[in-house]
Write a protein that binds this DNA or RNA. Structure first.
Ligand SMILES: [Zn+2]
Ligand SMILES: [Zn+2]
Ligand SMILES: [Zn+2]
Ligand SMILES: [Zn+2]
Lengths: 138, 138
DNA sequence: ATCTCAAATGAGAACGATTGTCAAAATCCT
DNA sequence: AGGATTTTGACAATCGTTCTCATTTGAGAT
């Protein structure tokens, strides 16, 4: 689950603010992964005044709390998205950005087994699939 | 295979240079993933004078040609390593950096199936497992 | 409502990895 | 050797992200 989500650490210690709500709201409105800067721009368009640094801070906090998912593009840029709860992975269309959340006992088991075989503990994994969705490939 | 390796595109069109050889050599000497900057530093220590930009260019070219593997750390930094050929994944110790190459028909099949089920084509995937190796966990 | 204090914010500077520029050097081909 | 083409290197420029710190805000006590 590394990189894609984190365990809910110190959760309740967070203060509700207008900015945080705005970030959560814009995330709830989009179903594609978005970068911090893109989200910041969307907020401005929507009339919400939120500092860029604040957007970064909130996204990171939310991701750390497992409220949203974060993954890195091929270029290394962090992108965020509101996701269903629980451990899962993503099937992302590299053309339009459409994302499907996928889950698989198969891979989870495989990852666990392989790690154990090599004596690794406290393992987390990242697994993302990129391709062309049906719509875009037509 | 996205992010971890790329198809061998235009290969033979590359000119052999001292710098390229030096980069390849230092990579062959290390068995852990290293960033471009680290490799550049290692080259200097070894007495090889190679420009930083050149190190970046060569690493990217080699990765694009599938000669070496590249993956991104949690912080988004690109790290490279000379790897065995063929499609595989990595089990990386987040403490000492020790890396084990793992392979699995299981995940490959799963990824293919899941992609197909959702109508995705031209799929590539990234899968890295991070944990604590036996040595470091003792 | 007022007071207090720690947490959160914002504006902008600072950072660090990566990329771009362009003239000089190396390689290839004849 | 001579000219065309690629590669290199020093350094400027990008760009995403983080840091700084003065100011604002939320939550709890009074
Ligand atoms: Zn698409
Ligand atoms: Zn998983
Ligand atoms: Zn280790
Ligand atoms: Zn694979």
């Amino acid at each position: 689950m590394t990189g894609v989500q984190e365990r809910a650490t110190s959760e309740g210690t967070r203060r509700p603010t207008r900015q945080r709500a705005a970030v959560a709201a814009v995330l709830a409105d989009t179903d594609e992964f978005r970068s911090a800067q893109e989200l910041h721009a969307l907020l401005r368009e929507g009339g919400d005044k939120v500092g860029l640094a604040t957007v970064y801070r909130n996204l990171q906090a939310m991701a750390a709390d497992g409220e949203i998912d974060m993954l890195r593009t091929d270029e290394g840029e962090a992108v965020y998205r509101a996701c269903s709860t629980g451990h899962h992975h993503h099937l992302v269309c590299r053309v339009c950005g459409r994302t499907v959340e996928v889950e698989g006992p198969t891979v989870e088991a495989w990852a666990t087994r392989v790690s154990a075989e090599h004596g690794f503990t406290e393992v987390r994994h990242t697994l993302e699939i990129f391709g062309t969705c049906a719509t875009c490939s037509r």
